[in-house]
Design a protein around this nucleic acid. Structure first.
Lengths: 338, 338
DNA sequence: CTACAAAACCGAAACGTTTCGGATTATCCG
DNA sequence: CGGATAATCCGAAACGTTTCGGTTTTGTAG
């Protein structure tokens, strides 16, 4: 493996000069620079980022910390789309990306900052964290720059990107209300998710503004999984046959609701309207196709990376980035009033 | 950031001793070792992997090189599932994973080995490469250990994992034949994909063994995309109305075929049977649900990582890993003879 | 108490860069 | 031509670790 020294020897200059030549400093003669570049190419040189990182105390590497990326999580490729977005910007900016995935068991072994410091990442992006995640406290305490996806914490060293969950949920429920529904239930995720809290808020706002009563028994948690949502929906629909519409805090759970409806012989959308959240790939392929609130997951990742790099390079105005959502009307909702 | 030196000073020993104590060498007194560990914890020490990697010439890092991971590729989460598998083993073995994504434009800028050497990865996993990919040549020439997903190249430093594509395709077509079909078309990927070549082989074998004639005009390329497959299927079905079954080299393309059939008013499976390949998530959610050849993508990644690490650590028997496939019968095929 | 082996420890070099401060050479101006 | 300025170049230290070879300390047998 050829080093800067080899080049120096062959070019009859000092390593200093080689370094400065290769890094585009101005105090090296253009002619020698060319010679050095020539030799570097000839010797098939590539710099050792470890050595560089060691002395510069920067690695040009971002860490992406995802929670619960396993065989099961592949169903909604939320994580993957975010990752794609991150990856996109990271390669544009010529950074590298190292992937940490954490499980609850692993969390005990190594702390967040240990992970980051060991690997010498310049900053980190955290995705899929729960509100009560032990890592989260560390993030705030540690001074490693990081940006959170869908968790609104802000400080000198931490920023976040998210979508407008309140408004998104509101739009979903308003769509239902405008279609003539009065008894609208909600299947939420769980209380440890920031987005769940916000989407519930949007749900309540929409009801309130329409003069509809908020009923606690109409809201249940589906744990963001298809299976739990199915059983919860089953129970809900049996207990409250007056319900004609459900707002689901995720598309995946909406699939569960559709399954429940099918076994209960409830027709969609004639008897029951559903609007989901996320616009995952699957949602346009189900029959009927799912009406949903779309959020641009790729963009979420892209922006997160952008924000982080801006923070690292000091060119930053705000530590926050809020993305828009969009109502996509498909076949699980119809206009009741018509 | 606390270093080994700080610990040494506080413990009144040399850095050598600290290093050896922390790394579990036997020539340090158990009592001093405990004291050192104590102090390390107290000082919140974590080792600098850059420095370590520099002297050890090993980074305990694997590179994952994926081709064409962008906004569009998120549709079949093949890549993601493989990545999940890789990630799983990588964290089990306490390695790290850095993600390189390459686009055709990027390929010119930095060569494969540059990428790997710069980042000092110990080895690499390549996924999504085409047969004529410029990286591929480099892989063989360079001596960086790597394993390829779905490309059968083997040498001292390179291995591969794949599924039995010939057999898989054969099973698909045999299923069609057993259901009474005689005129079976195939929509393949493209000629730069190893899997396409193999799946075509399986298709031909099945036909031959059943005494059916292989007709060149029954086989077209769908470029592994839904859209192309749709237009190709459209043309194929119009030109050859006698076709009653299509074997698609990927599920994604099968979706395109289903779309084409729909617009042509061809009923599935009554008029046309389809069997796909991959068993992507979507395939069980379409109506009718897609019969397909399942391959375990997660396992593909897991095994790839396992193989690579074994190669790196010298505990390896073979450089090859071939996984099984499984026919999953759903609703796009029926028994014609019954 | 001596001699010697074993146990415990340590100094310094090495890994491949960057960079500070200074040194050398060339250029220019009056 | 003297001196100053600019243009080039360089030596050596530093980053945080591992490890080779050796030294000191301790323990033990005779």
């Amino acid at each position: 493996m050829t080093t800067i020294k080899d080049i120096a020897k062959k070019a009859n200059v000092s390593v200093t000069t080689v370094s400065r030549a290769l890094n585009g400093y101005s105090d090296v003669n253009e002619k020698t620079r060319q010679k050095i570049i020539e030799i570097a190419k000839e010797l098939n040189y590539s710099p050792n980022t470890l050595a560089r990182g060691l002395v510069m105390k920067k690695s040009k590497t971002l860490g992406m910390l995802v929670s619960g990326m396993n065989r099961a999580s592949t169903k909604d490729n939320f994580t993957f789309e975010v990752l794609s977005g991150v990856n996109e910007l990271v390669s544009e900016k010529d950074y590298d990306l190292v992937l940490f995935s954490t499980t609850t068991t692993k969390q005990r072994e190594k702390t967040y900052s240990q992970l980051c410091r060991e690997r010498r990442v310049d900053g980190a992006i955290l995705q899929g964290m729960k509100i009560d995640d032990p890592y989260l406290k560390e993030v705030i305490e540690s001074d490693i720059p990081c940006v959170l996806v869908d968790i609104p914490i802000e400080s000198d060293s931490v920023g976040y990107v998210t979508t407008d969950n309140v408004l998104g949920a509101k739009k979903a429920v308003q769509h239902l209300i405008e279609s003539g529904h009065k008894n609208i239930a909600m299947i939420n995720g769980h209380d440890q998710a920031y987005v769940s809290i916000k989407r519930l808020e949007g749900y309540r706002q929409a009801l309130e503004e329409a003069g509809l009563e908020y009923k606690e028994e109409y809201v249940v948690n589906g744990e963001f999984t298809e299976a739990t949502a199915e059983t919860e929906a089953m129970e809900l629909l049996q207990k409250h046959p007056e319900i004609t519409a459900i707002f689901s805090a995720s598309d995946l759970m909406a699939l569960g609701i559709m399954k429940a409806a099918r076994t209960l012989n409830i027709r969609i959308p004639e008897d029951l309207s559903i609007v989901g959240y996320d616009n995952i790939l699957l949602s346009s392929y189900t029959t009927p196709a799912l009406t949903t609130i779309a959020q641009d997951k790729f963009q979420l990742g892209y922006r997160a990376a952008e924000l982080l790099i801006n923070m690292l390079e000091g060119t930053v105005d705000s530590h926050v980035c809020i993305l828009k959502t969009e109502l996509i009307i498909r076949e699980t909702t119809t206009n009741r009033s018509s």
